[in-house]
């Protein structure tokens, strides 16, 4: 079975895409945030791999062609951002202040929770960059001496959690302005959250893309300082 899968250049892509389509159908039918297409796709793919005893590496031998497009697609986030250039210029101060406060909130909350759970220094720095996009977070974690593979896992889980819970969080915090919703999503859940913000609207999506970049850069600077605190 594993050899059969390994010989295919499309198997991983096909089950990933079908998992996502099933997720979209379920969401259409049940209309609840829990039926998040991305989350369902991931769980379905894991279930298929486990049930058919397929190794992750064999799945990824073809699924990696999906991952390949992540870098060019992230570059393309500049396009919806540019389309909102007027809104960006008009609200530059509000946007930068909100993202600075957001990045600090992330660092401070990890510091407090890590000390409550008595995590080691190495575990603490592993979690410090948890809100930023995975490639930046992985770099920060390595730089500070954390476990970078755990960092990536935690970043992805934060992204999925934000993607799924974003609607509810905005309702509870009574965040209704499109710019504010987008910035919140991007600051907390990077690119995985941004795909949800894109569904909310063009302005939300653009602000979320902007937040990925700005929060990422602020965290590069902030994390090296915060690393000394625990």
């Amino acid at each position: 079975m594993n050899n059969l899968i390994l010989s295919s250049t499309t198997f991983g892509v096909v089950i990933s895409v079908f998992g996502f389509i099933i997720g979209m159908e379920l969401k259409k039918r049940f209309k609840t945030a829990l039926f998040n297409p991305l989350l369902i796709a991931i769980l379905l793919v894991i279930a298929v791999l486990k049930l058919c005893h397929i190794d992750y590496s064999n799945y990824n031998a073809s699924a990696k062609y999906l991952s390949y497009w992540l870098t060019p697609a992230t570059v393309c986030l500049a396009v919806p951002l540019y389309a909102q250039i007027e809104k960006l210029r008009q609200n530059l101060v509000a946007i930068l202040c909100a993202l600075t406060v957001g990045a600090l909130t992330s660092l401070v909350s990890v510091l407090i929770l890590a000390s409550l759970f008595r995590l080691s220094h190495q575990e603490y720095v592993t979690l410090l960059p948890k809100s930023v996009t995975s490639a930046i977070g992985m770099g920060i974690s390595e730089e500070l001496g954390g476990y970078s593979s755990v960092t990536v896992a935690v970043i992805i889980l934060s992204g999925i959690f934000g993607n799924v819970s974003g609607d509810l969080v905005c309702r509870v915090f009574r965040i209704t302005e499109p710019i504010a919703k987008g910035l919140g999503m991007g600051a907390a859940s990077h690119a995985i959250g941004t795909v949800r913000a894109m569904e909310w609207g063009e302005l939300e999506g653009a602000m979320s893309s902007l937040a990925i970049v700005v929060s990422g850069l602020l965290t590069v600077i902030g994390a090296s300082f915060f690393a000394k605190l625990l």
């Binding site: 609200n91 101060v93 509000a94 946007i95 202040c97 909100a98 993202l99 406060v101 957001g102 909130t105 992330s106 909350s109 990890v110 929770l113 890590a114 759970f117 995590l119 575990e123 979690l127 948890k130 809100s131 935690v154 889980l157 934060s158 959690f161 934000g162 819970s165 974003g166 969080v169 905005c170 509870v172 915090f173 965040i175 209704t176 302005e177 710019i179 504010a180 919703k181 910035l183 919140g184 999503m185 600051a187 907390a188 859940s189 959250g193 937040a211």
Partner: peptide, 25 residues
Amino acid sequence: PLIVIIPVTTILVMGVTGRTAQWFL
């Protein structure tokens, strides 16, 4: 710790960032 830290920080960051932006706007 992760089961607590991931949801709590994600909700906090999203809420605080969004509220701050909304306040300024």
